[in-house]
Design a protein around this nucleic acid. Structure first.
Ligand SMILES: [Mn+2]
Ligand SMILES: [Mn+2]
Ligand SMILES: [Zn+2]
Ligand SMILES: [Zn+2]
Lengths: 147, 147
DNA sequence: CTGGCAATTTAGACAAAGTCCAGATTGCTC
DNA sequence: GAGCAATCTGGACTTTGTCTAAATTGCCAG
């Protein structure tokens, strides 16, 4: 069993169990949000999650979506990715990995782990301790070269 | 002469010349903003720049501060650092380097170049091309260990 | 059961950061 | 000095997210 489950076919009971594993009380709203998220590896922002939950016919308020995403991130079932000053992405892949960010399309994608290596990590400034190391490779749409 | 000038004693004429070097027409407002910025190596957000300009007794509008910071970044005299979803930092050090970001204090600081090395850069996704590579080391205030 | 109670959810007000616009200013050039 | 393009400006507006106070829900003791 992998740590980052990506089954499309996760029923409410399965989702609830998974939430419990992360010490999250599985309310109706949390299960609905988790179902949308755990449908596969994704990088979604709060708005998109709200849209998908609503599209799925479930009624969940904006405040609850924000509360829940924050809770999920705290509990470690999701990872926040802060790469764009306008929105936080929630990453269903909670293992250590880095990202490409397409500044034209706004699309975030994983960098194949092992395809990058950060060496010689420096000491954190006096009085602080490292929390996370994040590599972001910003990419642009390739422009057509002149013929 | 280094590329990133950090003189505290840069007069209006000097600043204006520097703006011209970057192909920026030195208006009164742009010079005032540049004086605040080029006073030393700093990582400031728009609000802080606006505050400093106003504190210096110069009248510059919010819209002009935003326009000008964007222009300076486009022209390459400043670098935008996107590490916090709430604000963009403007870095007066426009050379390639990476950052520590203290998530408790909100302080951004440079990583000594050469103290970090990113290896085995992966290929950009099909149809895209690398724009920049950014390493962000998030740090926390060190908690006091139990006695 | 059933009232009590804490946790959760909700609508909508609010806030922070940034963008946009239409009119005013500025700085050339002729 | 008039004409003109670039720039600047106040303030309305947008986006993303937070906050609050009231309603709902889920549990549990009695
Ligand atoms: Mn969004
Ligand atoms: Mn913002
Ligand atoms: Zn990811
Ligand atoms: Zn820097």
């Amino acid at each position: 069993m992998s740590h980052s489950v990506t089954l499309t076919t996760l029923d409410d009971a399965g989702v609830a169990k998974r939430l419990c594993d992360y010490d999250i009380l599985p309310t109706r709203q949390r299960v609905q949000i988790a179902r949308v998220l755990l449908a596969g590896d994704q990088h979604l922002c709060a708005d998109q999650v709200l849209g998908k939950v609503k599209a799925a016919g479930s009624g969940v308020s904006k405040a609850t979506v924000y509360n829940t995403l924050g809770l999920f991130a705290d509990k470690g079932i999701l990872r926040e990715v802060k790469v764009d000053p306008n929105r936080v992405f929630y990453d269903t892949n909670n293992s250590e990995h880095h990202h490409f960010y397409n500044i034209d399309s706004g699309e975030l994608s994983d960098i194949d782990p092992g395809r990058i290596l950060v060496d010689q990590l420096p000491e954190a400034p006096e009085g602080s301790v490292i929390d996370s190391v994040e590599v972001i490779i910003r990419v642009r749409q390739q422009s057509i070269p002149d013929v």
